[in-house]
Simulated assay, not measured.
Amino acid sequence: MTETHTAYTDTDTLIRLLDAAEAMPAAAALRARSYEVLRLPPGATVVDVGCGTARAVVELAEHAAQAIGVDLDPAMLAAARRRFPDIDVRAADATELPLADGQAHGYRADKVYHVLPDPHAALAEARRVLVPGGRIALLGQDWDTLVIDSDQPELTRRIVHARADSIPHPRVARAYRNLLLDAGFHDVDVEVHTALFTDASMLPMFVGHTAAAQQAGVITGDEADNWIGEQTRRAQDDRLLVAVPMFLASATR
């Protein structure tokens, strides 16, 4: 699971949160499933859109002849190149990919479409770069249905929905199927997996949520401190629980 950059003051904080979340066994299994539904043939070219620090690009390279990562964030691309000097990552927008028509056999976007200005345009670009019969996989969470155990359910609802409202397309994951159908893809399939977190690794995400809720004027500073304090105590006492529905949609060009 990821946050948008606006919730944090620096990219390093975001990268630390991403690393903690993506290192969990369930996250690794879900990534592996997203590669599996691409059905990449031998010698395939695959593009990972919004690749971040390129963990998936490296893993996809084990399944394809050429894995290409694209991202618009210079700091993310720099971190990717530091970590994995031999990978192919490029600065590019999701609506202007640096690939020829029909060059890719696979297209993957993980926790990206909720921040894109125009998901429809991004899918049109996906169709352009995919070979006929190529496969697409979209992976992401539904920001409106984040489940957080709390002694303050009404305050928790306000925080969750305020955070969702700060994102361009918070419910895009539940719309993946219809978006793919509208874009002309076929053999569309949707799976829902639940990401479960019970440790302190999610506390930085909570800070981002309360910051967004405060900025929207939905909660006060005292309410934010009180809620973060509760969740911190829960983490210390092994009582924290967060459940996130993750949608994985796949289709054929």
Rank of each mutant, 00 (worst) to 15 (best):
E59V: 03
D151L: 05
N226T: 14
I159Q: 08
Q214F: 11
D199H: 09
L180I: 05
A20V: 04
Y113K: 02
I159G: 00
E62C: 04
V129A: 00
A26S: 08
H186M: 02
S250W: 04
A79R: 14
L116N: 03
P41F: 05
A92S: 05
T11W: 13
D199N: 08
C51H: 09
D225E: 14
Q215L: 11
A173L: 09
V89W: 12
D237L: 09
D225I: 12
G106D: 02
G217A: 08
D182F: 14
V218N: 01
P41E: 02
Q152V: 05
M24D: 03
A32L: 10
H193I: 04
T220A: 00
A183G: 11
G106V: 01
A211G: 03
E59R: 15
D93N: 06
A122P: 11
L139W: 14
L240K: 01
A78T: 12
P170W: 09
P245M: 06
W143C: 04
T210P: 08
E22S: 06
H120S: 02
F84A: 06
D12N: 11
F185I: 01
A23K: 05
A21R: 15
E36M: 07
H209C: 03
E223L: 04
F197T: 05
V147C: 01
E154Q: 12
A175G: 00
Y107A: 00
H169E: 02
D187N: 07
D225Y: 11
A249E: 12
A67C: 06
A213L: 14
L17Q: 13
A61L: 13
A80Q: 05
M246I: 15
A7Y: 15
D144C: 08
T194V: 14
W227S: 00
D101C: 00
D118N: 13
H193L: 13
L14S: 04
F206D: 05
L72F: 07
R171F: 10
H63Q: 12
A78I: 01
R234W: 13
L181G: 00
H105F: 05
L138Y: 03
I87G: 00
H186Y: 10
L72E: 09
E191P: 02
G102M: 04
D222A: 15
M24L: 11
A216Q: 14
L99S: 00
A173C: 07
F206P: 08
A61G: 15
L248H: 04
V244L: 15
H63V: 07
G106K: 01
I87Q: 03
T11I: 14
I228C: 02
A195N: 07
Q66A: 00
V37M: 05
V57K: 04
A243V: 10
D199I: 07
G69A: 07
L72M: 10
G43T: 03
S34T: 12
W227N: 01
R127K: 14
E230F: 11
T6H: 15
P117A: 09
A65R: 12
A224R: 13
N178P: 02
G69H: 15
G208T: 13
G217K: 10
A251H: 09
P42W: 13
A213S: 10
A162N: 09
D88N: 09
M205Q: 10
D12H: 10
V46F: 08
L155W: 13
L181D: 09
V188Q: 01
F206G: 02
